[in-house]
Every structure is written in C-alpha cells, then in structure tokens.
Simulated scan of single mutants.
Amino acid sequence: MIHVACVVVALVALEHLYFLVLEMFLWDKPMGMKAFGLTPEKAAATKVMAANQGLYNGFLAAGLLWGGFRGDTDVQLFFLGCVLVAGIFGAMTVSRKIFFIQGLPAAIGMALILTQ
C-alpha cells in the first residue's frame, strides 16, 4: 500500500505542475483558453492573476515532491491537505468539477498514507 500512496502523491504533484504550466505559460494560448473556457479578452485581462495562481500550484507540487523524496508523510499530509482545501473551495466557488480533479485525488492520497 505504501507504493500506491507514493504513486498517488506523485500524480497529485504532477497534476499541479501541469496547472503551473497552464496558468503561468499557456493561459492566453489556445490550450490554456480551452482548458479554462476563456475568451481571448478574458485571458488577457486575467493573465497576471493566473500566473500568480500557477506559482502557488508550483509550491504545492514542490511540497509534495519534497515530502515524497524525504519519505516524510507529515509533509505529504500537510500539502495534500492544502490541495484538498483548495479543491473544496474551488468546488464551492467555481465548479464542482474542481473537487474531482483536484480535491478527490488529494483525499485519496491522504487516506492511503493514513492507512499504512
């Protein structure tokens, strides 16, 4: 089970690195606009905000990878908890889909770590 938890934590980290790329570098490009349902005008107006958001996603990924490389489940649980809270907040304020994309994988990772 420990290996499954490591894989899930790594996948959540990779997901957040993907968010970093989408939000920091592709926000106003066709791929980014399609991913977030943006018009060119909306993308241009929110580009700086999205880059900041992408940076925070990078910090989440870095924390998860740091905890994984150290084998420190407390660090992993902390960052997975942050991801879970962000997923719940996103579901409540933007789209329920965010919980399934972001929050649920974090919750599964937490459950796997806690049941080791």
Rank of each mutant, 00 (worst) to 15 (best):
H3N: 13
V4H: 10
A5W: 01
A5G: 01
C6R: 14
C6V: 08
C6I: 07
C6H: 13
V7R: 09
V7H: 09
A13I: 03
L14K: 07
H16S: 05
H16I: 04
L17I: 15
Y18K: 06
Y18M: 08
L20F: 15
V21N: 08
V21R: 10
V21Q: 09
L22V: 01
L22T: 01
E23F: 12
E23Q: 15
M24F: 05
F25H: 09
F25E: 07
F25A: 13
G32T: 00
G32Q: 01
G32D: 01
M33E: 11
K34V: 14
K34G: 06
F36N: 04
G37E: 04
G37W: 04
L38Q: 03
E41K: 13
K42H: 12
A43H: 02
A44C: 07
A44N: 08
A45T: 13
A45I: 08
K47N: 11
V48N: 12
V48E: 15
V48A: 14
M49K: 13
A51T: 10
N52K: 09
Q53A: 07
Q53Y: 05
Q53V: 07
G54C: 02
G54T: 06
L55A: 15
L55W: 13
Y56F: 15
N57F: 02
G58W: 01
F59Q: 09
F59Y: 14
L60G: 07
L60Q: 10
A61L: 07
A62V: 14
L64Y: 01
L65V: 11
L65E: 03
W66K: 06
W66S: 10
W66M: 12
G67D: 06
G68C: 09
G68W: 14
G68R: 14
G68V: 06
G68H: 09
G68I: 10
G68F: 10
F69A: 08
F69K: 06
R70D: 09
R70K: 15
G71Q: 06
G71N: 03
G71K: 07
D72L: 03
D74G: 11
D74S: 15
Q76C: 11
L77W: 03
L77M: 10
F79N: 03
F79C: 04
C82I: 10
C82L: 15
C82K: 06
V83K: 01
V83Q: 02
V83L: 00
V85M: 06
V85K: 01
V85Y: 02
A86P: 06
G87D: 02
G87H: 02
F89R: 12
G90H: 02
A91D: 03
T93G: 05
T93L: 13
S95L: 13
S95V: 09
R96F: 13
R96W: 14
R96I: 10
K97E: 13
F100C: 05
I101A: 13
Q102T: 12
Q102D: 10
Q102P: 05
G103W: 01
G103I: 08
G103S: 04
L104S: 08
L104T: 08
P105F: 03
P105C: 08
A106R: 00
A107Y: 00
I108D: 02
A111H: 11
A111S: 15
A111F: 13
L114R: 06
L114Q: 12
L114W: 03
